[in-house]
Design a protein around this nucleic acid. Structure first.
Length: 153
DNA sequence: GCCAACGTTGGC
DNA sequence: GCCAACGTTGGC
């Protein structure tokens, strides 16, 4: 079982949107970045726990948690010419992009902003801090606990 | 909306 | 097989 941080633009798909899905379970799709895709396709597994991060918004922050409920499968949007995520180079035999299913777990008592994460010495090695633009990234167990603790108060 | 950091693409 | 151009991400 592994820990991850997933970024989502709240205007597109927020933690609250996930919570509002039937059973709190939704598809995490639209990934079009290769580094993120590789983590998703090769390492993210059912039962893994996820820090849900809101990006490209006023206060970028970790806002809660979710759990992976289905391993990577081809993202249907890449085959749909009407979708903004359509990829003409993808085929059913050779899908280029993948997605997973997530289940809502918790919303923090308060968001943990990126600015605060950057100021927390235990979190200085997080990929979030070291490499900004990566929408799926591994999180160390200690980092997971530190952030969850910050979100509790 | 600028632009920096990545990985991929493709011309040669 | 080098490397410049390109696409994506996302903080500021």
């Amino acid at each position: 079982m592994a820990f991850w941080l997933f970024k989502s633009e709240p205007d597109e798909y927020s933690l609250q949107d996930l919570a509002a899905e039937p059973g709190g379970c939704g598809r995490w799709d639209g990934i079009r970045n290769y580094q993120a895709r590789n983590f998703l396709r090769d390492q993210v597994s059912p039962g893994d726990e996820v820090l849900f991060y809101h990006s490209a918004c006023k206060v970028p922050a970790v806002v809660g948690t979710a759990e992976v409920t289905r391993a990577a499968y081809p993202d249907p949007a890449q085959f749909d010419p009407d979708s903004q995520y359509f990829d003409p180079k993808a085929s059913a035999d050779e899908p280029r992009w993948h997605c997973v299913d997530l289940s809502w777990r918790s919303e923090f008592a308060r968001p943990v902003p990126l600015a605060e994460i950057k100021q927390t010495s235990e979190l200085e090695n997080m990929m979030l801090v070291k490499q900004g633009r990566l929408s799926i990234q591994p999180v160390a167990v200690e980092e997971w606990h530190t952030i969850v603790r910050l979100g509790e108060r």
